[in-house]
Design a protein around this nucleic acid. Structure first.
Length: 262
DNA sequence: ATGGTTGGCGTCCAA
């Protein structure tokens, strides 16, 4: 008996009903953590998920951009959301299932210019990661953290470490901030525990490539992290790469993990 | 060195 959790940056939930259906049929997640739903909370398509058994819904939506939602067949014992950096952005929602807090994150992408002086979006991203660090220091309940963290922290999380050193998502200043966030709670990077470097591992491929499979210029932006005390309950983490190849895809593949019952 | 694509109550912005 285990709980299957799938995290997916869906790039507009209302534009992806067909592939969400396909994911549910193929992989039967118990819990689905979506990011970039691009819809305000009152307009979220609740009925679509209720009809498929996901009657427990924690939605933190926003008009136009961002937005996260956690849909579940299992009941929530608690739910919450945090307004990071007091920006009013919908970038986080958490639920408690089977005694585990499941955090669903959408970290700011950070714009194009990797200079916090010149680019307010990049400064915001660094502040966001620093808030995640200090928040992580205080966590005292078993937690799983998933979502689009918009950082590819390791050398083999990108198609070319050298060529991406000045590209937002893989700059040293971001990777360092990400590392401090990881260390603050002792988060276990479950994906890399089981699929270690130097194997290349990506969860995002740009829409702009002529042939994303052939060029394979991916990045690992989506993550599965666990508290050290429960990390051994998480099994078989994987990037569902085929989801990126479906018709009218998101630019992110879905990411899956199974959580053994405690 | 540049451009490429997608979605949103949109005619540009963010990704």
């Amino acid at each position: 008996m285990s709980i299957r959790l799938i995290s997916w940056n869906i790039n507009s939930v209302r534009a992806r009903f067909d592939i969400i259906d396909r994911l549910i049929e193929d992989s039967a997640p118990d819990i689905l953590a979506l990011q970039e739903i691009k819809v305000d909370t009152p307009l979220f398509p609740r009925a679509f998920f209720e009809e498929r058994g996901y009657v427990h819904q924690a939605i933190n939506g926003q008009k136009n951009h961002h937005g996260v939602a956690t849909l579940s067949r299992l009941p929530f014992e608690h739910q919450d959301q945090i307004d990071w950096c007091q920006m009013g952005d919908a970038r986080h929602v958490s639920v408690r299932v089977d005694g585990i807090d499941i955090h669903n994150f959408y970290v700011p992408a950070g714009g194009d210019e990797p200079d916090p002086e010149a680019n307010a979006k990049f400064a915001h991203k660094l502040s966001f990661l620093d808030e995640m660090r200090s928040w992580s220091e205080a966590i005292d309940t078993p937690s799983v953290l998933v979502g689009d963290l918009n950082v590819a922290p390791l050398e083999h999380d990108v198609w070319s470490h050298k060529q991406l050193l000045k590209v937002v998502s893989h700059t040293p200043v971001e990777c360092d901030a990400f590392g401090r966030f990881i260390d603050a709670h002792g988060w276990v990077d479950v994906m890399r525990r089981d699929i270690p470097e130097p194997e290349k591992l990506y969860s995002w491929w740009s829409y702009r490539a002529r042939d994303w499979v052939r060029s394979d210029r991916g990045r690992r932006l989506d993550h599965v992290l666990a508290s050290p005390g429960i990390a051994d309950r998480l099994h078989s983490p994987q990037v569902l790469k085929h989801t990126r190849g479906w018709e009218k895809p998101s630019d992110h593949a879905a990411v899956q993990v199974d959580i053994g019952r405690g």
